[in-house]
Design a protein around this nucleic acid. Structure first.
Lengths: 274, 274
DNA sequence: CGTAACCTTGAGTAATGTCAAGACTGGTGG
DNA sequence: CCACCAGTCTTGACATTACTCAAGGTTACG
């Protein structure tokens, strides 16, 4: 029955509070091992890379960091000279809006580039926060620039990654702007289910994703209270079931129909032609 | 007093209706003239390009098309082997949501790349519609790939363009999801004012932008009726004035304050360091 | 056990949508 | 030049959705 499950969480950090815990633990400099495999796996999902490209990716220098739930992978306004890749765990990208509000603009899963946007900008104008225990690889930007310049296929793979990100952003905009609360929640649950299934099928069981109803609200442009009510509604309709802080999709086809969910925007299928 | 004005429009095309007019008139194949200047101007705003890069851009092959208000620059689901650049006029990117609804996900102005997302995808999952008389240059994708491969600076300039696009998308998400109707409208008006001023200062007076209150609603996740009420509210507050279908910003600082508008997300200022 | 974070629920309120009618505008054809 | 017309704007009355506030229950964790 169950298509997907995640723990709704108990240790999530409020948007407005400081949440200073979860400071990264200093890792060691590594060169050339299998640690970056999630990145390669993700890039290969959509792009053709030959063995030289693969080797170049796997031998990128990086520094491993570990963060606890609620820790910051990226802080708004801070300058860095590296870019991060999420290797393990889940995170969300968020923008602060006035009055202690925030909008979550993306969910990130293993293999995702955390802050590719800072590639060419001086400062991030968003934060990225861990929604589980998280491992990231911080790759010096100079090394990334060097590799992408030498290996055009890698450049294109990152570009494609950015385009998929943009496609998801557009769908989220449509979701937030033009669907009602019930459909919004159902739609996001469908997206999470599909994306998680992909991750779990490739990298084995991943940790629980501590996504509170407040997180969901901030992602959907809703109040946590209203998210709760919509959960109950979906449960009454027999589309999902909740017990404790885990939800399970009972009827994926009907949930997708209720959400107007069409997974094409995730661009999971096709390698580019050419 | 006036910081910006656009005509709110009378000939806009409804989202749901067919709107089959505005078919492109077939242009001629051109190589190497000044027609692509708006693209170059825009790229140079944020990226350093040397004279060889500039020459490569200006000598890209392209086909000119002219569309009327309401015509489609890009149609969802259609395959093309070219990418378009908006040379003159205004357009909006939009996604269809079930039930004849749409979400406008971006506004496009002269120099903007219309469908860079299709760079590596087979099909667009959005449409782009003209909001004024429009001139575009359709550049064969093969030529784009060739030029960006030979000139890394051009590749990077397009990449930066895409990142700015993503940044704007995030701000729109935050706007739609986490601000009330009055702030949303004020915020969008601020963005349009800033971006238009840039265009007009560089390319001279541009045509009226036919953005109906329905367009605004579809961009903001609101009803056209409610957009109208918020317009009246802003007028009562002395922030803008409307006469006929033109609005004028009377007090930009107060409008920005009311909107929580901070133009950093447009990334207008900085050339990248390095 | 005790506590902080989170979930759940209800009652009342505010914001936004819906429907409908009339006025205005710019373009078109007679 | 005028009359007409489709599209748009404007406004009011009403319906609905979602928010706010508040209280109590639950869960995870020390």
């Amino acid at each position: 029955m169950a298509c997907c499950a995640f723990r709704q969480g108990t240790v999530g950090v409020m948007a407005t509070s400081g949440g200073e815990r979860g400071l990264p633990s200093v890792g060691e400099i590594n060169v050339g091992n299998v640690e970056l495999q999630p990145l390669l796996t993700k890039l290969k999902r959509r792009s053709l890379l030959d063995s030289k490209d693969e080797a170049a990716i796997l031998t990128l220098p990086f520094e491993l960091k570990t963060l606890r739930t609620g820790g910051y992978l990226v802080r708004s306004g801070k300058h860095t000279d590296f870019n991060s890749v999420l290797l393990h765990g889940f995170a969300c990208r968020q923008k602060a809006v006035g009055g202690g509000r925030r909008q979550i603009t993306a969910l990130q899963m293993p293999g995702d580039t955390v802050d590719l946007h800072n590639w060419l900008f001086q400062f991030a104008d968003y934060s990225v926060q861990a929604m589980s225990a998280v491992t990231i690889a911080q790759i010096p930007r100079a090394a990334l620039i060097e590799v992408t310049t030498r290996f055009p296929a890698i450049m294109r793979a990152f570009g494609l990654d950015a385009l998929v990100d943009a496609s998801i952003s557009m769908e989220w905009m449509a979701n937030i702007g033009r669907r009602n609360a019930l459909m919004r929640l159902a739609h996001l649950l469908c997206e999470i289910a599909v994306r998680r299934e992909l991750i779990d099928s490739q990298d084995g069981q991943s940790p629980y994703m501590r996504m509170t109803q407040e997180h969901l609200g901030d992602a959907l442009g809703l109040t946590a209270v209203h998210v709760n009510r919509m959960f109950k509604q979906l449960e009454r309709d027999g589309l999902i079931s909740q017990n404790k802080s885990t939800f399970v999709i009972l009827d994926m086809p009907r949930l997708q129909a209720a959400a107007g969910f069409e997974p094409a925007y995730l661009h999971l299928e096709s390698l580019p032609d050419e």
